[in-house]
Amino acid sequence: MPTIERSAIMRAVKSRGNASTEGRMVSILRGARLTGWRRHLQIVGTPDFVFPAARVAVMVHGCFWHGCPRHYRSPCDNSVYWSAKIARNIARDKLTRARLRRDGWAVLTFWEHDLKREDVVVRRLRRALGRGVTKTL
């Protein structure tokens, strides 16, 4: 695929409100009747979903954009650019998780492929929400 076509396709992908990640997670949360969550709360790293009362931050990563170890395949065109871009995303994700944890948040990360197993997602969320996290100084 020519670079100009690929660029147009990639520009069309939204960073928020993606149906295969965030939209799917909203459906899971509502289906499980989990309440108390907010989207894109302005805290460190702006997690996709936040349960402020339980201090639980939820990141939902697309397998391509965040370099899923199971599913990421670098495009053949402009592979140097894409390798560097995905490496920056992975480094930013790691830093964000560390900063949130330092600030007393429990951080859950779900990959796009994880969302196919709703029961597992809900179980992990309920466990984290039941545990609660208190900030330690």
Rank of each mutant, 00 (worst) to 15 (best):
1 M>N: 09
1 M>L: 13
1 M>F: 13
3 T>P: 10
3 T>E: 15
3 T>W: 15
4 I>A: 14
6 R>D: 05
9 I>G: 12
10 M>L: 15
10 M>I: 07
10 M>E: 00
11 R>Q: 13
11 R>C: 07
12 A>D: 01
13 V>G: 08
14 K>C: 02
15 S>M: 12
15 S>P: 08
15 S>N: 15
18 N>M: 13
18 N>E: 09
20 S>I: 07
21 T>A: 05
22 E>V: 02
22 E>T: 06
22 E>S: 11
23 G>A: 05
24 R>D: 02
25 M>G: 09
25 M>V: 05
27 S>A: 15
31 G>F: 11
32 A>K: 02
33 R>Q: 15
33 R>W: 08
34 L>D: 07
36 G>L: 12
36 G>C: 13
37 W>G: 05
39 R>Q: 14
40 H>W: 07
40 H>G: 00
45 G>K: 07
46 T>V: 10
46 T>D: 01
47 P>I: 02
47 P>W: 08
48 D>I: 08
49 F>L: 03
49 F>N: 04
50 V>Y: 12
50 V>W: 09
51 F>E: 01
51 F>S: 04
51 F>I: 01
51 F>R: 09
53 A>Q: 12
55 R>V: 00
55 R>I: 01
56 V>I: 00
58 V>Y: 01
59 M>D: 02
61 H>P: 04
62 G>Y: 04
64 F>M: 06
66 H>R: 06
66 H>Q: 05
67 G>L: 08
69 P>D: 09
70 R>P: 01
70 R>Q: 11
71 H>Q: 04
72 Y>N: 05
72 Y>F: 14
73 R>W: 11
74 S>P: 01
75 P>Q: 04
75 P>M: 06
75 P>K: 06
76 C>Q: 12
77 D>W: 14
77 D>F: 10
78 N>H: 14
78 N>C: 14
84 A>P: 12
84 A>D: 13
85 K>S: 07
86 I>R: 08
86 I>K: 10
87 A>T: 04
88 R>K: 14
88 R>E: 06
90 I>R: 15
91 A>E: 13
91 A>Y: 11
92 R>W: 08
92 R>M: 08
93 D>F: 14
94 K>E: 04
95 L>V: 12
98 A>I: 03
99 R>V: 06
99 R>L: 13
100 L>M: 03
101 R>D: 05
101 R>P: 00
103 D>Y: 09
104 G>K: 03
105 W>M: 02
107 V>Y: 04
107 V>P: 09
108 L>Y: 00
110 F>K: 07
111 W>G: 05
113 H>D: 02
116 K>L: 09
118 E>Q: 15
119 D>M: 12
119 D>S: 14
120 V>Y: 09
121 V>E: 02
121 V>I: 10
122 V>T: 03
123 R>A: 10
125 L>K: 03
126 R>T: 01
127 R>N: 03
127 R>L: 06
128 A>W: 06
130 G>F: 00
132 G>E: 04
135 K>M: 09
137 L>F: 13
